[in-house]
Design a protein around this nucleic acid. Structure first.
Lengths: 208, 208
DNA sequence: AAAAACCGAATGAACATTCAATCGGTATGG
DNA sequence: CCATACCGATTGAATGTTCATTCGGTTTTT
């Protein structure tokens, strides 16, 4: 029976190796060795290297998507959802630094076709809905959702990359400051919810 | 006689091809063909493909660095410098979309060694100085310069990538809104310079 | 004992790099 | 003013290596 485990082992190995050696620099043979399987076995699970990377890409997107959905549900007020979402994504990327590099390489590779790009990607859609909701509630600036979404997610990614690439580790208060900064950037300047949001919120849920 | 032109032609070709085909997917032979030189010629100018990419990386960084320096000098007040700098970088990345992908691929490639990372890279240093100045002037939040710098540059990059990858084209007013958003994120919430900065500033300088 | 998972050596294509040959221009000598 | 020697730039076919993929056989599972 096809072990789902093995696929995950391979995925994990690919992420590791891509981080270490880059997108090139990771031949199938090396993946096989590190994952303790034979090269041929990889082709039992995936039709080709390309298919493998595509599946991995989808797999990760689903993970992130799941985090977003789950986190959004766990809070009530918009500001709190915002805070928690930022935090949850940040922690995910910090705990899975390999993902950051993989994504960047992937979207710039020939594998990333236009279909994949404008595809009704669930993650993108979820984030767009999230910011649209904020606009409707008159909390966020009345900007196009694409822009707000990019500002939000881009901010998280920037901080995570800073952590990974520059080894800049944010202290707890600094994280709060940055989330505040992000919040300030997407909300109307005067509009309410000014400090109310500096909630003593609980990390433990997402933390590891 | 060694033509400096030819190096630039090769650089430009590499950027183009990497955008089209990704970092892999661009063999030297293809670069040679597109640049209308023989494969061997490339090795007359560069010791290896690796060296070529390293030089290209430096070359681009210097270009960006030059833009930052020049733009910083062209304005007096900090808010205006901030505005102009954001704008100049944004326009550079919009006009040179190939650069975006190249950078991302490069920093995740095996070529990007630790030396290059923490290296006293002039660009990084300049940006750090710029935000430090802002902190000293009590305009920017008292955060670590690394963080402020990342927030600033990350914001520009995010918007440029949105443009490139999602084909989201910002209208003039939207650009202003985004710069304002970025400004709000790095300045103290209450602190002065609130709207004064929505200067009717002149694009023509950097525009193309 | 059939099927499915797994192995890893073998295959052939693609690649970075090399190098002997050519070309075009510039200095040197008559 | 021509002819000759010289030099670096340029070429592209040849080389050796690396890689993705295949496939005949072996083990494991059902």
């Amino acid at each position: 029976m096809e072990q789902p485990d093995k696929k995950h082992v391979i995925f994990q190995t690919v992420l590791e190796l891509i981080r270490e050696k880059g997108f090139h620099g990771t031949p199938v043979s090396m993946i096989a060795e590190r994952a303790n399987v034979a090269a041929g076995t990889i082709y039992h699970y995936f039709d080709s290297k390309e298919v493998m990377l595509l599946e991995l890409y989808k797999y990760i997107k689903e993970q992130v998507q799941a985090i977003v959905v789950k986190t959004e549900q766990s809070s009530q007020t918009y500001p709190e959802q915002f805070y928690q979402l930022w935090m949850a994504l940040y922690q995910f990327y910090i705990n899975n630094p390999n993902v950051l590099g993989f994504f960047e390489q992937f979207v710039n590779s020939p594998y990333y076709t236009d279909e994949l790009a404008d595809n009704t990607c669930a993650l993108r859609k979820t984030l767009l809905d999230f910011v649209s909701k904020g606009v409707k509630q008159n909390v966020l600036m009345p900007l196009r959702p694409e822009i707000l979404s990019a500002l939000f997610h881009g901010n998280v990614l920037t901080m995570a990359k800073m952590h990974k690439l520059r080894k800049v580790v944010l202290k707890k208060e600094e994280v709060s400051e940055v989330i505040d900064a992000c919040w300030r950037s997407v909300t109307r300047p005067g509009t309410g919810y000014p400090d109310k949001r500096t909630i003593d919120f609980k990390l433990n849920k997402n933390g590891k």
